[in-house]
């Protein structure tokens, strides 16, 4: 294939992978620790994108907007956790799925009420192009990839070097033992949920300049994000990273080969992987108590 197309294709794929990764890492952590499927993460993604839009319109800075998106994602997640999730941690998985889906569509209603249904464009923070091996690539996409890489390092350090992170890792293995030691797991749950919400908000903020911001954007990306989480295996950070790279590249390179295939191929891959390993690439056979 033509390298003139291939390199921008790979960069595009990496930037998509970054967005998917930022969203699915939170989902994965929430599943691992609390055993919930939190579809409402897609709402924090939309909120992040909308705040980026609003703040960038008023201040002219997309970066400030993305920061506001992170804060809003985290704060909304905190409120939702305190009001709703706290009551349903003990229930089975389907329960959290349905409830969080209710939060998602309810939240989409709120977004429509505030911002209306018309899709909104967000300006690229840096319109420059950079030349890589003779092809022009937008700098912003590279920045998105860099930020996602920094987040990965940050999360890794958090989980491996801080005591809270260690407690979260221990909780992913067995939350009851963590509780038995006397660690306040309910605080641990809140921290994890807020981190997940903030990262989803960040994903929305970073994604906003690359797409049109519209109320249903969460639903559109939902299938892809869950595909990432499933291919990687729920509850595994490393799996999430690997599978978001796979999905991002398949979507991007696939569209160079045959456009309709691009959106379908990841699903086909997912089905294949689940056939071979029903828990995903890095997923263990976690069973809800």
């Amino acid at each position: 294939m033509d390298t003139q197309l291939l390199i921008p294709g790979i960069i595009f794929g990496l930037s998509m992978a970054s967005v998917y990764f930022l969203m699915s890492i939170g989902l994965s952590l929430c599943f691992g620790l609390m055993r919930i499927i939190s579809l409402d993460q897609l709402l924090y993604y939309s909120i992040g994108a909308y705040l980026t839009y609003t703040v960038s319109v008023y201040t002219g800075s997309v970066w400030l907007g993305a920061l506001a998106g992170v804060a809003a994602g985290g704060i909304t997640a905190l409120a939702v956790e305190r009001l709703i999730f706290r009551r349903i941690y003990e229930r089975e998985l389907t329960f959290s799925m349905i409830t969080s889906f209710g939060i998602l569509i309810g939240g989409i209603g709120v977004i429509k009420a505030i911002w209306g249904v018309v899709p909104r464009p967000v300006r690229m923070p840096t319109p420059e192009l950079i030349s890589i091996v003779g092809t022009e690539v937008p700098v912003y996409r590279l920045m998105v990839v860099a930020i996602a890489a920094l987040v990965y390092i940050g999360i890794w350090l958090f989980l491996n070097k801080t005591i809270t992170g260690k407690a979260i890792r221990a909780g992913i293995e067995d939350v009851e033992h963590v509780e038995g030691l006397g660690i306040n797991v309910s605080r641990l749950f809140t921290i994890t949920f807020v981190i997940a919400g903030a990262l989803s908000g960040l994903a929305g903020g970073l994604h906003a300049p690359l797409i049109m911001v519209d109320p249903n954007m969460g639903l559109e990306v939902l299938a892809f994000v869950f595909m990432v989480v499933i291919i990687g295996g729920l509850g595994s950070i490393k799996g999430t990273l690997v599978s978001s790279l796979i999905v991002g590249q398949v979507v991007s390179i696939g569209s160079l080969i045959y456009a309709p295939l691009a959106l379908m191929a990841p699903f086909a891959i997912m089905l294949l992987i689940l056939l071979v390993k029903p828990t995903g690439l890095y997923g263990s056979t976690l069973v809800k108590k």
Binding site: F31, I37, E92, L93, T94, M97, L222, A223, F226, M227, V229, I230, L234, A259, P260, L261, L263, M264, F267, A268, M270, L271, L274, P278, T279, G280, V287
Partner: peptide, 23 residues
């Protein structure tokens, strides 16, 4: 497992959607 079941079905719906729309 039930959670994977839900999401795999969602994936199937998306595949069928693109099949009917594009492929």
């Amino acid at each position: 497992r039930s959670d994977y079941f839900a999401l795999v079905n969602l994936a199937l719906a998306v595949i069928v959607f693109y099949m009917m729309q594009k492929v």
